[in-house]
Structure formats: structure tokens, C-alpha cells
Design a protein around this nucleic acid. Structure first.
Lengths: 234, 234
DNA sequence: CGTCAGCTTGATTACTTTCAATTGTTGTGG
DNA sequence: CCACAACAATTGAAAGTAATCAAGCTGACG
């Protein structure tokens, strides 16, 4: 039997900036009655690029990466998702196949809302379209900034930036300095648009400089200020 | 005195996929009564990144580039605009300063619609928000694909892709093979996230291979099929 | 305790950028 | 209409960054 906290219920679900939010009880009840709860393990695919978009996904718990495959199958992580985020709305709104895949970075709980229910709520509540527009503009801004970063910054800057993204998205553990996510070197490379080897070399450089401390997969940030500076300088 | 065709009127303005479209006559009349027509010369700035977003812009005629400055002032062109496109809606919707600048690539006519009028029309017509969402999702998709291209493709592929973008956006002149835009080598570099020198070298390589013919600023595409192939291969 | 995936390191190669110098083009004022 | 200034294009050479290739290493797990 799962713990109470692990059985998600739309009625008391988190209403973050990156979720549908501002739903009334009736709407939440509608979602709750029609949702399907997916329990996914690390590495499991929630939805896959190219597939028909039939559902909206709400992350009830866990951590996911949104990525696309590029040339020769090289993966590019374009976004990270955590508890409270919604996924797949872009494809539903534009009525296109999912343009990216969503993969669990750790054990996660994701609620699947059928397309029809999504649109039912969407059309009943004017606030939601404004909300979605906000999400889209935010994603667009991020994507365009990311483009410039990749185009103009060095590997070292991009790796530092990825670490900052991890911190901003998932935060620290209780010690306030260990980044709160399990991530492979190869995934850090895929976030930073570089190779695994370059990611490793850069991380160990940052390690030697005392900016971070590496302990297996644990990344401890010993000097956040220096790390921040790295994003722009050198 | 300007020619009739040069004085834009919202009533009979183009309703392309990338414009507000689906407006009724009353709405068009409202826009028309409140618009301000800007006649800009090559190199003129229509709006600038960082400035408060007070207006929506509709391109009545001409060609513009939307770009951001990156590290050390290096320019990155993130989008191109032509007759019928609207600009600045992202910033209006998210109530943020313009995140990029819009600069005329040639003599252009741009109509400026005050923010308040835009929102008046926006809130009176449900279709418009759906339309804007479509534009946003399209831009987002483009931006994310662009990111992967920059991250994973060679300069040669990116230059070829930029040429394809120019063709798809501005088309050919009457001869059906001269790209219908005046653009500098440096701007092609800024579209492709590379340096002017690399852009020049790559273009002259494509020229030597008979894929394109360079004649000053004129770019004649002699072998479109080969050019298309270049986008993905090598 | 063997295996497999992920991690690490070194050496080499390749692609692009940077720097420098020259030539070509365009627009403007005299 | 010419001369000049300013900008744009071109080319070569050198330098640098990061990718690729190759080979061990490590640690988790059945």
C-alpha cells in the first residue's frame, strides 16, 4: 500500500507558477475523476517525440528531463521538470505530435489528463489560456536565451550554467549545498550541448578550483558566488 | 506623395498565418484609427531589447531581423519578419520589456498599435488568444530546433540552413533562383551563429561547388536540392 | 565475484575562431 | 563627378577549443 502522500489528488494538488493553477473545485474534480496516475521509474519514458499528443501530464512528484534527439542520435536536454509542472501542453495546443520526449530522472509520479478533458477545462476558464500563454512566453524566452548561450559561450560557461539550472530547478538538499538531483555526467553534457568527456573535464576543473566538490554523483557547491561568476566570465 | 499601396490600411491588410488575422471590420477599424505608421530605412531600429513594451507592431511592408546581443555585443539573429507578420506580442503578453531588438533589413513600413488597443481587441475576440498561442508554439518549436542545430551542426550545415531560412521566408526574385533579400555576410553569420570570416569561407565553398552563385550581395541558388541536402549531411 | 554501465584520463585530430592585411563597394560632401 | 571616408568582403596564417579515439578504472548489483 502506498503512503497517502503518494496518491495524488487534483483537489489539493500544488498550484505553482508552472502549472495550470487557478482552477476551481469543480474543474479540479473533473481532472481528478479523469486522470490516470503513472508511476514511473528512473529512465522510463512518459511520452515520446513524434507520438500523437493525446494527453496533458502533470508532475505530482519526481524529476524529469525533456529532451530531443539531434544528429546521429545525440540527445539534447531542453528543459527540466519537477513537482507541480505540466508537460505536453504545447503539443496539445498546436495539435502536433510531441516534439520532444519526457524521461524520468528518478522515480516519479505523473498524472495523465486526456486531451478532451484538458480542452473542456481550457475552454471553460478564460484564465487558463492566459496562464498557458504565460508559460509559453516564459519557455520561449528561455529557449532563445539558451540558443545564444550555446552559440556564444564556452563549454566551461555552459557547464556552470547547467549547474545553476539544476540548482534553480531542484534546489539543494538539507545541507544547503548538495544539489538535490541524481544526474549522470552524460546528462550534464546533454544539458550543456557538449560531450561526456568535456563535461567530466570541466567538472573536475571546477572541483580542483574549489568551486564544487565531486563525490560520486553528489555535486556539492562549495562556492556558489564563484560558480555564478563562471556563467558569464572566462 | 506616396503611392496608394504604400499607405497601409488595416481594413484591407494582409491576414497571414503569422498575423493577428480573423479580425472583423469593427476591430480592424479600431486598429486603423489608432495605428501609427512608421516608415523605416535600412538599419533603423523599430524597437529595442530592454525597452518597455508599449506597442504591437505589424509589418505592412519590408523585411526585418529580430536579434539579441550576446557576449561582448555579438549579435544573434533569432527570427526574420516580412510583410504580414506581427512583432512584439510576446513582450506585451508577458508584460516584460522587449527581449530582442527589431531592425529593418531594408526600407519597410511598420504599423504601431498601442498596447491598450491591442488588449481591447484581444479581450473582445476569443479567437485571437488561440491565434497568438499558435504563434507562440510555432516560435517555441522553431527556437528549440534552432538550439539543437547550433549545438550539433557544423558551420557548413548552419550556413546552408540559414540560406534555406532566407528562401523560405523571403522567397526568390522573378528569376526563381535569386534569393529575394539584401543581406550582408555578417548578417548571414549572425543568423548562423558563426563569424563573418567563416560565413564568407563557407559561402565561397558552396559557390565553388556550384550549389550557389555569388554576385556581390546577390545569392543565386543554382542547385536547391544539393543545398537542402547540405542542411543535414556532412 | 563477475559484469556492465558509467566515469576518468591522455593523446591526437579537426574544426573554427582570431588576427592581420588587403581589396572592393558605397554613399557623401565639395 | 570625383575623392575620400566608412563600411563590407576576402584571404592567409596561426592559435585555440573541444571533439574524437583509445584505454583503463570504479562501483553498483545480480
Amino acid at each position: 500500500m502506498k503512503k497517502e502522500s503518494e496518491v495524488p489528488n487534483c483537489i489539493n494538488c500544488i498550484q505553482g507558477n508552472t502549472s495550470l493553477c487557478k482552477l476551481n473545485d469543480a474543474e479540479r474534480e473533473l481532472l481528478n475523476a479523469n486522470k490516470k496516475v503513472l508511476y514511473v521509474k528512473k529512465g522510463d519514458i512518459v511520452f515520446e517525440a513524434g507520438n500523437k499528443a493525446n494527453s496533458l501530464f502533470c508532475v505530482a512528484n519526481g524529476k524529469l528531463k525533456i529532451s530531443k534527439l539531434g544528429k546521429e542520435g545525440k540527445e539534447q536536454i531542453i528543459r527540466l521538470s519537477k513537482k507541480g509542472d505540466i508537460l505536453g501542453y504545447r503539443s496539445l495546443l498546436s495539435d502536433e505530435p510531441y516534439s520532444a520526449s519526457s524521461i524520468a530522472m528518478e522515480e516519479s509520479t505523473v498524472c495523465e489528463i486526456p486531451k478532451s478533458i484538458f480542452f473542456q477545462v481550457y475552454s471553460s476558464n478564460y484564465q487558463i489560456s492566459m496562464n498557458l500563454i504565460q508559460l509559453l512566453t516564459k519557455d520561449l524566452k528561455t529557449a532563445e536565451q539558451h540558443l545564444i548561450d550555446v552559440a556564444q559561450k564556452s563549454v566551461r560557461e555552459r557547464i556552470s550554467e547547467s549547474l545553476m539550472t539544476l540548482i534553480n530547478t531542484f534546489g539543494f538538499k538539507n545541507d544547503n549545498k548538495t544539489i538535490n538531483v541524481q544526474i549522470t555526467r552524460s546528462e550534464i553534457a546533454d544539458m550543456s550541448s557538449t560531450t561526456t568527456e568535456s563535461a567530466i573535464r570541466t567538472l573536475s576543473q571546477l572541483n580542483n578550483e574549489g568551486i564544487i566538490q565531486l563525490d560520486g554523483k553528489r555535486i556539492v557547491v562549495s562556492n556558489l558566488e564563484l560558480l555564478k561568476k563562471n556563467v558569464d566570465i572566462i
